[in-house]
Amino acid sequence: MAVITFKENQVTLLGSEVKVGDKAPDFTVLANDLSSVTLGDSKGTVRLISVVPSLDTGVCDAQTRRFNEEAAELGNVKILTISVDLPFAQRRWCGANGIENVQTLSDHRDLSFGKAFGVAIEELRLLARAVFVVDSNDVVTYTEYVSEATDHPDYAAAIEAAKAAE
């Protein structure tokens, strides 16, 4: 299991760590209109899944903006940003920040994604910062569990992995 810290304090991640070559586990999260979204809803496309603790923090804001900007270069890659923020807050944040190329999804209801991908922080009921690339056959081709949740992920590596999976 990945060992991570949040503000330099070690935290417990719920679920199983996902590894390159694994079949991506299914999950159910909520779209901004409260409809359910599963991994299967985007089957047949490459997915870059950007996981953030909360959009209302500096690093999460920057991460989501960065992948929103990179989306134009990624062609047939769907970018999903998942957090435990409420869907209403996600919609408000996206509208206020002009985020149109990333789909924000909420895992607040039951941590389905967090537990399936091993990123649910038990002590905080937040998601750990991570990035996953899932190819069009639902195989995980890239993973990054950011060791300190307040640090940035390796954007360049994630973008290259998404391009390679197309």
Rank of each mutant, 00 (worst) to 15 (best):
A157G: 03
L86C: 13
S147T: 11
E17Y: 06
D135L: 10
V52M: 05
L105C: 08
C60G: 08
L111S: 10
D61M: 04
E17A: 14
S147Y: 09
D110S: 11
V146E: 02
I79M: 10
L80A: 04
E17M: 09
D22P: 08
P153F: 11
L55I: 14
T64C: 12
L74V: 12
G58N: 13
G118F: 06
H108Y: 13
A157H: 05
V140P: 05
V133W: 11
Y155R: 15
T81L: 03
E122P: 06
R92I: 14
P25Y: 04
P53L: 03
L48C: 13
L13C: 11
A165K: 11
L127D: 02
D22H: 03
D154M: 06
D26I: 00
S50K: 03
G21K: 08
A89D: 11
R92V: 13
T143C: 14
L86T: 14
D110W: 09
E122H: 10
I49Y: 04
Q103D: 09
V37T: 07
D138E: 11
K23E: 05
H108L: 08
Q10N: 02
V119R: 10
R92W: 04
A130D: 02
S36T: 07
F113M: 03
L86E: 13
D151R: 06
L111H: 10
V29A: 06
S50Q: 09
D41T: 06
L111R: 05
V134L: 09
E69D: 12
A2I: 13
C60I: 01
L48R: 09
S35N: 12
R125M: 11
N76F: 00
I159F: 07
Y142R: 08
G58S: 13
E148T: 05
S50A: 12
F88Y: 15
V77E: 04
G21D: 04
G44C: 03
F88T: 13
A2K: 07
A165V: 12
V37M: 00
L34V: 08
V133P: 12
A89C: 14
F117A: 02
F132K: 05
A89K: 07
F113K: 04
I159H: 04
N9L: 15
D135N: 15
V51D: 03
V18W: 01
V52T: 12
S106T: 04
D154H: 09
M1Q: 08
A24H: 00
N137V: 07
S147F: 04
R65V: 05
